[in-house]
Design a protein around this nucleic acid. Structure first.
Lengths: 212, 212
DNA sequence: TCGTGTGAACGAATTCACAGCG
DNA sequence: CGCTGTGAATTCGTTCACACGA
């Protein structure tokens, strides 16, 4: 209802952002089911948080609820969409045209949230020129020119570990603002570029530790 | 050097486990390069932690370093391998034979750390019977019998969201101990089964928030 | 001397508990 | 009354700083 003024320089932790993502998905379900209210208890149950935590998270950004009633799913969904920056289109370039890239291109969730893969690059002649849906697999040489031409803002690295740092530098050189790295290698990028890493092995190691 | 007695019921946070995974990879590089020592500063730099944090993390499990010198990479690698439970073989069943599954089967890191994919399942007749390297794509009906036959302990769900809960229940029924879920759906499993979720969209949403 | 191991200090995240409002 | 919004209390994770031993 009353969003907080943006200039207050709110500090938001990484875990808060991850929870907002979780709330976002629960809200989408509630809207889908045409529910007219949702409580912090509902959001807590679906996301694994506590009701107090949910309310604290939301209150960071404004006062969106009605006391005694709860939140309006449709409205809160819109608020969180805006908070997460999902109310705009993100043009994404995907580097490395392997199986993981294939999976990412096929991942419906991305498009739904405004992440549109606008280009796929690889340096394997056997892959260059392949048609992936509407996308043509492009040679690495075109990364710079196409990034600018198609106004890409996010790059996804889905190459083998050995190529990752080089690819990151090319992406930075092409003016990309954020990088999502799936290669199991620590990358170095300038401060003005945001880097997120996903390491599939870490999750399995977490399971291994828990089961041991 | 002196590992801590295990019965002390040490509480280890999720973030500690994730950092141990990071140290593990740095140590593997040091061993590869035949370095004879590694300090908490080296481990901190490579993992994004602080030296104090590294030492605290390690001291949770024992005293592995030499004062004034550092740690022996080979020895510390072995310790962490044991702590993470990577000193044994984990037999993994993969459900859903799509592109993501393909990527996971091809992911070299898994095998290297003891995670061996022993079976792949799908319910699509077009996929059943396909040969993936040495693996035959099996029909879902065989999940129970094959899980037991091949002593699978971990199940990976790489199906569409709609099938995930059903698959999880079949895995639980087949006696699996841990589940790694890639489907964007909240799953319910009994307490004795460990569940880890990986949601590819969450990471992109984090980027979106940071860039907005 | 150098870097570990660790209690103590600190800061961040979470939970408690209740005032406030529909 | 029911559920939000939020200070206060608490728990948990991190950093500091230094004693200790190689």
């Amino acid at each position: 209802m009353i969003p907080k003024r943006r200039e207050e320089e709110i500090r938001v932790s990484d875990s808060t952002v991850r929870r907002l993502s979780a709330y976002y998905r629960i809200l989408a379900e509630f809207v889908e089911r045409k529910e007219t209210t949702i409580s912090s208890y509902d959001l807590a149950e679906g996301s694994g948080a506590t009701p107090a935590r949910v309310r604290k998270d939301l209150s960071t950004f404004g006062q969106f609820g009605k006391r005694g009633t709860g939140y309006d799913p449709r409205q809160l969904l819109a608020e969180i969409r805006s908070i997460l920056g999902l109310d705009r289109k993100w043009r994404v370039g995907l580097v490395g045209a392997g199986n993981l890239a294939h999976a990412l291109v096929a991942y419906k969730e991305f498009e739904r949230e405004g992440f549109v893969i606008e280009a796929v690059f690889d340096n394997d002649p056997a892959k260059i020129g392949q048609l992936w849906g509407k996308l043509l697999v492009e040679p690495m040489e075109r990364l710079g020119s196409l990034s600018r031409e198609r106004k890409l803002t996010i790059g996804i690295i889905a190459t083998p570990a050995g190529a990752a740092q080089d690819v990151a530098e090319r992406l930075v050189g092409a003016g990309i603002q954020g990088i999502l790295n799936f290669a199991p290698r620590k990358l170095t990028v300038p401060d003005h570029v945001t880097l997120k890493n996903v390491n599939l092995a870490i999750e399995l190691e977490g399971l291994s530790f828990a089961l041991k």
